[in-house]
Every structure is written in structure tokens, then in C-alpha cells.
Amino acid sequence: MPHEALVDEIRRFNRFYTRLVGLLDETLVQSPYTLTEARVLFELDRRPRTAGGEAGLLARMFHLDVAPIASELAGELRLAPVYVLRILRKFIAMGLAGIHAGPEGGPSFVSLTPRGKAALADLEAGTIRDLARLTDKLCDEEALALSDALKRVTRLLETART
């Protein structure tokens, strides 16, 4: 298969899947969060993010002490650091995330609050519900074939990347 045809086929699949699961909708799974915000919630839950050093009063007031965390997350998610910083500030203002002093005077860190964990649990439940609805008409054999195809695509693309 010519490379251009493969690229076209991947793009066609991306458009199909994006429409199918509603990734271009304003918010994700009928929630108040965008796809990017949902991903940031997930990443904050996966591991707390450490900020560098002790921030001064103004830095804490304007949440500038989370800038290093925003930069780290932005690099991992391939987003603009200022965009991730805005999301972190929004989450802090909404009570979804909090800045906490590090143990024994160490650097502060950002993690989800109980409210943030509940928001993430709602998002995950909605995603599971939507994907289950998407695949519920597949028989066992079709579900297995889809699972195998997804694993194969992942393996092929990971191999091609290295």
C-alpha cells in the first residue's frame, strides 16, 4: 500500500471515530469539561504534580506556583503551557484541585481534591457507559475481533514510532 494511501486511511478512520464518540463536541460525555480538561484531570489523578520551590505570596494568590506543573503537563500532553496553566487555575478555583505544601518543607504539589476525584469518576463512568453502548450490539466473536484489531493497530504504530 502506498504511504499516501495509508495516511489517507488513517485520517479517514480518525474522522469517523471522532464523530462516532463525539470528541469534537464542546464538552465530553455530557459533562462540563472539554476533552483536554478531562485529560488534565486524569493526569492529576494519576500522579500528583510537584512545583518547584517555595512560592511567594503573589505567586500563590495568582496560582503562578503551578506554572512549572503546567509546563510539565503541557510537554506530556503536547499542549501550550499557558493553556494548561489556565486549566489548572480553573480547577483550583472550582475546588477540583488544590495546591498542597510538600512534606518537610519540600516543593508544593497539585493534586485532585475529593470534589475533583468525584468529577473524574463521573467522567470515567460516562465514558464507560458511552463505549459500552457503542459496542453492546457486537457478539462475543466480533468483540474479540475488535479487541484484537485495536491491539494490533497499537502494536504496529508503536513499532513504527521507534
Score class of each variant (00 low, 15 high):
Gly116Gln: 11
Leu96Ile: 07
Ser108Trp: 04
Ile99His: 03
Tyr17Glu: 08
Ala93Val: 14
His3Pro: 09
Ser111Glu: 15
Leu112Cys: 01
Glu9Tyr: 02
Thr127Pro: 09
Gly98Leu: 10
Val153Leu: 10
Ala38Cys: 09
Gly95Asp: 06
Cys139Met: 10
Ser108Ala: 08
Gly53Trp: 06
Leu88Arg: 03
Gly98Gln: 12
Leu123Thr: 00
Leu85Trp: 00
Val21Gly: 02
His63Phe: 07
Arg161Ser: 09
Arg49Trp: 12
Ile69Gly: 03
Val66Met: 10
Ala51Asn: 15
Leu146Ala: 15
Ala97Lys: 08
Glu124Asp: 13
Leu156Asn: 12
Gly126Ile: 00
Lys117Ile: 05
Leu23Ile: 04
Thr36Trp: 08
Ala143Gly: 10
Gly95Trp: 13
Asp8Thr: 04
Leu150Trp: 09
Glu43Thr: 08
Glu124His: 11
Thr154Met: 15
Met61Tyr: 08
Tyr83Pro: 06
Phe42Val: 07
Gly126Asn: 03
Ala59Arg: 08
Thr154Ile: 15
Ala160Trp: 07
Leu131Glu: 01
Arg86Asp: 09
Ala101Gln: 12
Ala160Glu: 05
Asp130Gln: 07
Met94Val: 12
Ala38Asp: 02
Ser108His: 04
Glu76Leu: 06
Glu37Leu: 03
Leu150Lys: 02
Val7Lys: 04
Ala118Cys: 02
Leu138Ala: 01
Gly105Lys: 00
Leu77Met: 08
Lys151Ala: 15
Thr34Met: 02
Val21Pro: 02
Gly116Trp: 13
Val84Pro: 06
Asp65Val: 01
Asp136Leu: 11
Ser31Lys: 07
Val153Ile: 10
Leu123Asp: 00
Pro107Lys: 05
Ala160Ile: 09
Leu146Arg: 15
Ala55His: 10
Thr162Glu: 14
Arg86Ser: 07
Val21Ser: 00
Glu43Leu: 10
Asp136Lys: 12
Arg15Ser: 14
Glu142Ile: 02
Arg11Gly: 14
Glu26Tyr: 02
Asp65Ile: 03
Leu96Tyr: 11
Gly106Asp: 13
Lys151Tyr: 15
Leu77Trp: 05
Val7Arg: 04
Ala51Met: 15
Gly52Trp: 11
Arg46Asn: 06
Leu77Cys: 03
Lys117Met: 10
Arg19Ser: 15
Leu112Val: 02
Gly52Asp: 12
Leu146Tyr: 14
Ile69Tyr: 03
Met1His: 03
Ser71Gln: 11
Pro81Phe: 07
Glu76Pro: 01
Met94Cys: 14
Val7Thr: 06
Glu76Thr: 04
Arg115Trp: 14
Leu23Asp: 01
Leu146Gly: 14
Leu112Lys: 01
Thr154His: 14
Leu77Lys: 00
Arg12Asn: 01
Arg47Lys: 05
Gly53Leu: 04
Pro107Val: 08
Met1Leu: 03
Glu142Ser: 05
Phe13Gly: 05
Thr27Gln: 09
Ile92Tyr: 01
Gln30Ala: 07
Leu88Gln: 04
Val21His: 00
Phe16Lys: 14
Asp65Glu: 11
Arg39Leu: 14
Glu43Ile: 06
Phe62Asn: 05
Arg49Cys: 11
Ala132Trp: 03
Ala67Ile: 15
Asp122Gln: 12
Thr50Asp: 14
Val66Cys: 08
Leu131Gln: 01
Phe13Glu: 12
Val82Thr: 06
Leu85Val: 00
Gln30Pro: 00
